[in-house]
Amino acid sequence: MNRSVILTCAVTGAGDTTGKNPNVPVTPKQIADNCIEAARAGASVAHIHVRDPETGGISHNIDHFREVMERVRESDVDIVMNITGGGGGDWMPDAQDPSRGGPGTDMQTPAERHAPVGELLPELCTLDCGSLNFGDMVYINTADWLREQARMVQAAGVKAELECFDLGHVWFARQLQKEGLLEGDPLFQLCLGIPWGAEADTETMLAMRNKLPENANWAAFGIGRHQMPMVAQAMLLGGHARVGLEDNLYLEKGVMATNGGLVEKASTIIENLGGRIMTPAQTRAALKLVDPKTGKPVEGGDQ
């Protein structure tokens, strides 16, 4: 069991959720405010996407990312920042010509995906480690594209959080490590419950955990009603955890969640199991992240 838990809050995703829960943040200010709310509730890390402020839909606008980062870093709270590197991979074949993308398709090159990370230099960024049927669409991450993106993340000095939606993604992440494209001890995020990837259950989490490199740090999350059970399960199996409105809209049945409320509920679960949430400073030391204030890797510290 892991008694010192890094708790990530994924404050807003790219999914069509803004009409389902009014607490899902949309504008850069709202997203930044939710990062700050999560930090005050005890989160170690804030994971961010950005949205079109007018429509609430997908956005890759670097100015929106910049505004979020600046607002959080200028606030009176500390939290490790994690920018998505997985945007622009959605493919929906056109009904008349399946060789072309239809409505809902949103594709970017590896360089375009990496642009906010390379310019804004968060402590962490995600690197999704494979393709899969993501509900009714296909989420595309070809091996050579991921190698290219991994090289750019490495050159930027940002630590990659390796998002794995299925067992083969863990296999590919180990290959990236073998090829020297990952720095230090790798950090994995096991993403469970998304149709039609890895299921959100004990057997699946355990199978994925058992395939990780010996020097890996890892966390896991489940979506929807699986979110809180997976918090407990990840801790019991030796990992860290993630919650947030990107993955789950409800605090309990019929009760709309906030990011702060989800962090508080997860914290209670972890504390009731005998654990504690690591502070952002402790998280940086544990993962050997670059301190945004000094630009140097953090070493040691009370974990």
Rank of each mutant, 00 (worst) to 15 (best):
S4W: 11
L7N: 00
T8P: 01
T12R: 11
A14D: 13
K20L: 11
K20G: 09
N21G: 08
V26Q: 11
D33M: 10
D33G: 10
S44C: 04
V45Y: 06
V45L: 08
A46W: 06
V50S: 06
S59C: 05
S59Y: 12
R73W: 11
D76E: 15
V77A: 14
D78Q: 14
D90S: 13
D90V: 07
P98S: 11
S99N: 05
G101F: 11
G102Q: 14
T109S: 15
P110Y: 03
H114F: 15
A115K: 09
P116V: 12
E119R: 10
E119Y: 12
L121H: 13
P122A: 03
D128L: 12
N133G: 08
N133Y: 04
G135E: 07
M137I: 14
V138H: 14
V138C: 14
W145M: 14
W145Q: 14
M152R: 13
E161A: 09
E163G: 11
E163S: 07
C164I: 11
A173T: 02
R174Y: 01
E183I: 06
D185I: 00
F188R: 03
C191D: 04
G197H: 02
E199T: 13
L206V: 13
N210G: 07
N217Y: 06
W218K: 00
F221G: 07
I223P: 04
Q227L: 03
M230P: 01
A241Y: 00
R242F: 09
Y250M: 15
E252T: 01
G254N: 02
T258E: 08
G261E: 03
N272V: 10
M278R: 09
T279D: 05
L287V: 06
K293R: 12
T294L: 02
T294F: 08
G295Q: 08
Q303H: 08
